[in-house]
């Protein structure tokens, strides 16, 4: 049984479908990249998984159970964490409050301690308002917030978009480490090459459909994927 199973998923924000039949699976312990050009529907797919897309039809199973009818807060309670592309922290809440506000955490104090240990930059400024944080700190807080309830799947929408080049590498390292803590990852990325490099498999979306998919290494060496979707090979 796959951790996440998506079949013929369609839907969007109103009358017009943005997703035109997406099929995708993610096994427990995997990191899977979803790449694609601007407007391909990557963020829309992420929203469909976490429950924020207004119109969705098709199959969406998490741990073998259909979750399409569940509101976002109950999908989160089932074990799906989400870091949106923009607006991924509560700006007027402090760092600590951003973590405390997460619902359904068994031992809140202990869990918060763990996460603040894992993100020392946050621990130093725990009373600071999230709105005053730098891009990198904000991203760390968004990660910590999403990890607060110990999810089994993290859906990350362009986690490196707002980061400086040096911090991008750190962020991918952090993502690579997640499966060791029992967290599988679906990561939407513009930096497809770097993302595939830490992933097991990848999907490339185009026009709301899966255009290509396969092992990350295979996609990275595929000429068609390279020329159409991933930018030129580094060496060429």
């Amino acid at each position: 049984m796959s951790l996440l199973e998506i079949a013929d998923l369609r839907g969007g924000y109103g009358e017009v479908d943005i997703l035109n039949g997406v099929s995708l699976t993610l096994e427990a312990g995997e990191i899977v990249t979803v790449a694609g050009t601007n407007g391909a529907g990557k963020s829309t797919l992420a929203k469909a998984i976490v429950g924020l897309l207004p119109v969705v039809r098709g199959v969406l199973n998490f741990e073998g159970q259909g979750i399409l009818g569940l509101p976002p807060e109950l999908r989160m309670a089932r074990g799906i964490g989400y870091v949106p592309q923009v607006a991924n922290v509560f700006p007027s809440l402090s760092i600590v409050e951003n973590l405390q506000v997460v619902g359904g955490v068994a031992n809140q104090k202990a869990r918060m301690g763990e996460l603040l240990d894992a993100f020392p930059a946050l621990a130093q400024r725990r009373r600071a308002r999230a709105g005053s944080l730098s891009g990198g700190e904000r991203q760390q807080l968004a990660f910590a917030r999403a990890l607060m309830a110990s999810p089994r799947l993290m859906v990350l929408d362009e986690p490196t978009a707002a980061l400086s080049p040096k911090m991008v590498a750190d962020a991918f390292e952090r993502i690579r480490a997640l499966p060791r803590f029992g967290v599988s990852v679906l990561v939407v990325e513009q930096r497809a090459r770097q993302s595939l490099a830490v992933s097991d498999r990848g999907y490339i979306l185009d026009g709301g459909k899966v255009a290509m998919s396969g092992a990350a290494s295979a996609l990275l060496s595929d000429d068609r994927a390279a020329s159409l979707y991933l930018g030129r090979h580094a060496g060429r």
């Binding site: 976002p72 964490g81 949106p84 509560f90 409050e97 619902g103």
Partner: peptide, 21 residues
């Protein structure tokens, strides 16, 4: 109160953080 301020900041983010509207 914290949940109220979170919803005021960002309703969708609050929901995916497990806050019940």
């Amino acid at each position: 109160g914290r949940q109220m301020r979170a919803v005021a900041d960002d309703r969708d983010l609050a929901r995916v953080s497990g806050v019940r509207p």
